[in-house]
Design a protein around this nucleic acid. Structure first.
Lengths: 259, 259
DNA sequence: CTTGACCCTGACGTAACGTCAGGCTCTACC
DNA sequence: GGTAGAGCCTGACGTTACGTCAGGGTCAAG
């Protein structure tokens, strides 16, 4: 049973802590059109409108553009429950980011007291502009392991052109050596292949995101599951994707048996 | 010993996760002017500049306007340590607000499942626009006891119209009675005046912020030192400001002698 | 000596409202 | 029952914090 109670702009403005002008604006751009108008043309908002406004303000607080917000809320696949859950996730993330910023302030304080300088890369942790678009597009469909993805984004944004060249070369070298092994008919579970797999893992760990053996195995699975990766591997050796996958799994197993 | 290492716009941009244009902009408006320029006019930023940029980005993250940020960082009374501590405080507050918003999402989820409606006043908790101006202007110059000020802001933001009316009336009553005493020629250090001073202290303690006797005395000093307060008192009785001041001090002394 | 990555300074564009101006509506009080 | 004050409406122009070219120097590498 839904009570059909209406609110005028002024009332909504007080409730939500926004200005009347903001509501006018949302109406004009079609983001929040009140579900009713009085005889005299007064805007009348019902509970559904308020709930939508709540979500709008929440997403705005998280720096999404009104345009993006509109798309999210009007998405055909929009499901209220999962939307709310997603929002909670975003808020948790923000808490983590804020925590990092606080950490930065603390470091600045100790640096000040000890008259030292802060580490230049730590300095802006949590303060970088987060690229919402990429987040939306990419994270939305594939890649599953979102934490790794995000950390990867965070780190790689700092890399300059030279860095990229060097890192890419390092990665290519490992892949080339694996391709050579495959061409020579070596075993994926052999010593040489496993060592190269381990090198690959360290490469990722150093330049992209913390990569445990478990994470590495998950990655290996993706190499055969995701067409984008498949293409990359097949270009430098037929069957390389599965070969690398096996080598990584063998390496992970070896690491576990050692500990 | 400070290492004098310089960074160009591009490098700073990557470090801080902002665009080059943003740095140009900050330069033009005088918010962050690089401490050096190369022969060819290239902007060169040193560590101090980076630290300032860090603070700028932090305060921006907290939605302060560039104008406000400039005023804060260039305030004559600016002290790096207390500025950092203040920033940490603001960030903690934000964590609390985020927590409230998450709470709101959870409530929305349960409301959805139980097909009920949310409480309209709880709905937007943590999402209201915070009035930065008030915070800034006031906190910047006077009032010294910033903690009290912030706590006061925090509490009063929740008060509705009725609350305000009631609280204000309660305060006015006390003042009126003190004015009466003054008019009757009573002693500021007399029993009646001291009792009213105590009432005044409790009033603040209950509705605005924890108010010890020490804090109350500091407040009393302000009543004669700050023209805004002076005006308030003088309007309802000539010499009332000093009368109240004396009564408060006497009351504080009495409290101490009792313990 | 050219090419590609960076740097510079205008100058115009844009998102999300703020801020009037000019005018209708509704309750309240004399 | 009229009028004052608070609230609503629709333009329309202003503002903040950059984004986005355009046109043109700088510098290391090949």
């Amino acid at each position: 049973m839904i009570t059909q109670q209406f609110h005028t702009v002024g009332q909504v403005a007080v409730l939500a802590g926004v200005t009347v002008r903001t509501l006018h604006h949302y109406d004009r751009i079609g983001l929040l059109v009140p579900s009713e108008r009085s005889e005299q043309g007064y805007r009348l908002y019902d509970y559904g409108d308020l709930e939508r406004l709540r979500q709008i303000r929440l997403l705005r607080e998280l720096r999404f553009s009104l345009d993006a917000i509109g798309q999210m809320l009007d998405a055909t696949a929009y499901d209220r429950r999962s939307a709310l859950v997603g929002q909670r996730e975003l808020l948790r993330e923000r808490q983590e980011r804020t925590e990092k910023i606080i950490f930065g302030v603390d470091r600045a304080l100790t640096a000040l007291e000890e008259e030292k300088e802060m580490n230049r890369t730590e300095m802006f942790e949590g303060l970088e502009e987060f690229d919402h678009e990429q987040y939306q597009e990419e994270a939305e469909r594939r890649w599953g392991h979102t934490d790794a993805y995000r950390e990867s984004m965070r780190r790689t944004r700092r890399y300059g052109k030279n860095d990229w060249a060097r890192i890419k070369e390092e990665g290519e070298t490992v892949m080339a050596r694996l391709a050579d092994l495959l061409a020579d008919g070596a075993q994926a579970a052999g010593r040489a292949a496993m060592d190269l797999a381990e090198e690959h893992r360290c490469h990722i760990d150093r330049w992209f995101y913390p990569c445990s053996h478990g994470m590495h195995r998950a990655l290996a699975d993706m190499y055969t599951a995701d067409p984008r990766f498949m293409e990359y591997f097949e270009k430098r050796g037929q069957g390389l994707a599965t070969f690398v996958q096996d080598a990584i799994k063998a390496n992970a197993a070896r690491a576990r048996s050692r500990s």
